[in-house]
Amino acid sequence: MTGPQGLAIDATTVAQRDELEVLLLREMIRIRRFEERCVELYSRESIRGFLHLAVGEEACAVGVMQALSPDDAIVATYREHGHALARGISMRATLAELEGKVEGCSRGRGGSMHLFDASTRFFGGNAIVAGGLPVAVGLALADHLRGRHRVTACFFGDGAVAEGEFHEAMNLAALWHLPVLFCCENNLYAMGTALEFTESETDLSLKAASYRMASWEVDGMDVLAVREAARQASDAVRSGGGPHFLEMRTYRFRSHSMYDPDRYRDKSEIERWKLRDPIGQLTTQLMSRGVLVSADLEGIEADVAAEIQDAVDFAAAGTDEPIEELERFVTSPPAPRDRP
């Protein structure tokens, strides 16, 4: 596979680069601390249902989102809190959604797995494994037909690669040369089943390449590498280079969902991956380069803690959607001509 061309980060000066790296670190910390707080809220039963955390995988969401433009579209999965926050959905609206409040980004209709926000072109939040891929192809088809130079970034896991919809979508995107950036978060497991037990070919970027699609592997624990690969790939996609596939090799530190007893992998495996924690790695780098001192880090943590507390208060003060609105939005409000 040909990869992105080195780390030709677009930030040209050293200062710009430092600033970018700190921003990426801050974004990852925001997501990490937010999800840690969600665990607490889950134990207190403020959040219910399925809750899928992406602790350990933050570099994927942050790296890709930082490479996109406001005009681009995002299609994500049920493990999408990080993607939503990194895309710019407010922490308030995100947490209110997790708590089922009408102030949530989906009015409390969706919950953790179905975050939506039309204003940031965030098209969900899809809990059918691979169900978002064909939709992403269609969003890109619309851009193609209208002559708009936009990217549709579609996130999915390694498990999705086994679904027929994955293959149908890859073929359609490549056949029609559509502007889709396929972002595969390969965390090696689909629930409790390791990739080696489900795929005859475990090199996922090879599968993508078989569709004659540019296909790159990237260290999903290195936010700079992800951001740079996503930047080069999305530039190529936007300028008519056809769909691109990014396989981000990553790992989730926590269980699949709050229900998962995590019996299927060795604790030592988790510990090994934790040594490559995207937040830990970048922090160490920035501190060793003197870009960041402890006080800066404390400052970031304090800002993030304040934002989270504000979101928690906002969600707690949120309201239930009135029962009378239960059937609202099953279909659109009546149009004058066609509906009684």
């Binding site: 098209f123 192809v137 359609l172």
Partner: peptide
């Protein structure tokens, strides 16, 4: 472009129709 033959991918092209509708088509 407007009369678009598709592969035998019912899920794929119906889903693409949904996406295209979301994209304003």
């Amino acid at each position: 472009e407007r009369i678009r033959d598709t592969p035998l991918s019912e899920s794929g092209f119906v889903g693409a129709g949904i996406g295209a509708a979301l994209g304003g088509m």
